[in-house]
């Protein structure tokens, strides 16, 4: 069996993006289960310490393509390199971030290779499949599990006959974890002249403004999230105060963002960020499926809501019935009195 490939995005700061490190972490586990190797693809201009950045995640081979015109990302040259590399290496599985880059690139690659691609997977597993009609048995397929239909159904997708089995996964869905601090792989420089043609560079970037990510909701262990029910910006300030006191970040539902109570960068849910903190305090959030899809993996959930029937209460460990404006100050007060 061939190997697992992960396309690694390079950030403005010359680091491998978190989403790619998360995919490498997941890729290592899948590779162990299938007893195959994990390979990374890095396409960039300049990059420092690529080996020390990637080997601890259990990467066996780094394929690197370096050329000034390969950063910032444009579709065609990156697609050409990957399509040609995949034709040679015939990966078993190929994973991409479900980011503005990955969701631009992966479909183009899949179309060219005529292989199956599943967008926005929330879980990846290995399993077998028996084809109903022919009774043909497929061993060790990649189960690509994702919400569909606005988050109202969860579908398990497989690609029985085409390779690579391709999937994109959003940032924050998989856990980023080192496999071994002493792991050593090898670095392969790609002969990109062979892969690229001049036409690949016809699309020009005239202007570019990309900010560093300021708010780190995804990495927060404690999230205090507000919904439309918070009501006012003044009440939202209480969320920030509680976050400051107990060391968390403030998140929001789409309704709160749409109402102008909070910045879009803090939106959690299917069209925002997916989070899995150890504590999620939902304030005045009713809990539409789209919101729950982005937070229902939280270890502990507290819902503060004056509606005892709010759907979010059903997935909450604790439900406090009452007003956000009354309850948050009490939580801050008792935290300060009781913390050591």
């Amino acid at each position: 069996m061939n190997n697992i490939f992960v396309y690694c995005e390079v950030t403005e700061e010359g680091l491998i993006a978190d989403v790619s490190l998360e995919l490498l972490s997941k890729g290592r586990k899948l590779a162990n289960e299938l007893n195959i190797k994990l390979e990374a693809i890095v396409i960039c201009d300049q990059i420092q310490n690529i080996e020390t950045q990637l080997y601890p995640f259990g990467v066996d081979v780094i394929h690197i393509a370096q050329e000034p015109r390969l950063f910032p990302y444009t579709t065609l040259p990156h697609a050409s390199i990957i399509i040609n590399l995949f034709k040679e290496e015939k990966p078993e599985i190929a994973l991409f971030g479900a980011t503005s880059i990955g969701r631009d690139l992966a479909p183009r690659v899949a179309s060219s290779l005529r292989c199956g691609l599943t967008a926005d997977c929330t879980s990846l597993e290995i399993g077998d499949h028996t084809e109903n009609k022919t009774q043909k048995i497929y061993k060790n397929l990649l189960y690509q599990i994702r919400p569909a239909f606005g988050g109202n159904i969860i579908a398990t997708i497989i690609n029985p006959d085409t390779r690579p089995q391709m999937a994109t996964v959003r940032e924050g869905v998989m856990k980023k974890e080192h496999f071994s601090e002493t792991y050593k792989g090898k670095l392969k420089k790609l002969n990109i002249e062979k892969y690229l043609k001049e036409d690949d560079f016809l699309v020009e970037i005239l202007e570019r403004h990309v900010e560093k990510q300021k708010i780190n909701i995804k990495g927060a262990q404690i999230i205090i999230a507000g919904g439309y029910g918070v009501g006012t910006k003044e009440n939202f300030d209480l969320l920030y105060q509680l976050a400051d006191a107990i060391g968390g970040e403030v998140g929001a539902s789409r309704a709160a963002v749409d109402a102008g109570l909070v910045d879009h960068a803090r939106q959690i849910g299917q069209t925002g960020i997916t989070v899995r903190p150890k504590l999620y305090i939902a304030c005045g959030i009713s809990g539409a499926v789209q919101h729950r899809a982005g937070m229902d993996q939280s270890a502990k959930i507290i819902s503060i809501n004056n509606d005892p029937k709010a759907p979010i209460n059903k997935i909450a460990d604790y439900t406090i019935i009452g007003n956000v404006g009354d309850i948050l100050p009490k939580m801050i007060k008792y935290y300060k009195e009781n913390s050591k």
Partner: peptide, 22 residues
């Protein structure tokens, strides 16, 4: 090339929530 192996409808999980007051 992609086949749907399984579809599950999302059902709100019935987990006991502990009710508190303010």
């Amino acid at each position: 090339p992609t086949k749907v192996k399984k579809i599950e409808n999302v059902v709100l999980q019935q987990k006991e929530t502990i009710l508190l007051t303010s």
